[in-house]
């Protein structure tokens, strides 16, 4: 039997122009245009939205949860942490 499921698209949502697009979930759709429309119904009706991206889930290459060593800090690397100065939450690249 053929698989009649639509493929999934990952949905990225932007609240205001210039902000990062943030991953909010996924939708099933037959093609990218329908994916955008369905994503609009799913994620942009209540949230303020200026832009949506959809990406076929199969295009995402991901790490494996089983491969914990990939992120492991096996030796002490605390000397690399910038602890001696505070950084504001919002960095302004044009400030003096």
């Amino acid at each position: 039997m053929t698989d009649t499921q639509w493929e999934t698209y990952e949905v990225f949502h932007q609240t205001k122009k210039g902000d990062a697009h943030i991953h909010v979930g996924s939708v099933h759709a037959p093609d990218p245009q329908m994916a955008l429309q369905l994503a609009r119904d799913q994620f942009a009706r209540r949230l303020k939205c200026t832009s949506l991206w959809v990406v076929p889930s199969r295009c995402v290459t991901a790490t494996n949860y089983q491969d914990e060593d990939f992120f492991a800090q096996t030796t002490d690397k605390s000397y690399r942490d910038p602890k001696a100065f505070g950084a504001p939450d919002k960095l302004d690249p044009h400030a003096d």
Binding site: W6, V27, H28, A29, Q37, L38, D41, Q42, R45
Partner: peptide, 11 residues
């Protein structure tokens, strides 16, 4: 027939 269309039609 599909969750996404369910939500779309409700909208």
């Amino acid at each position: 027939p599909i969750l996404e269309e369910d939500i779309a039609f409700s909208n």
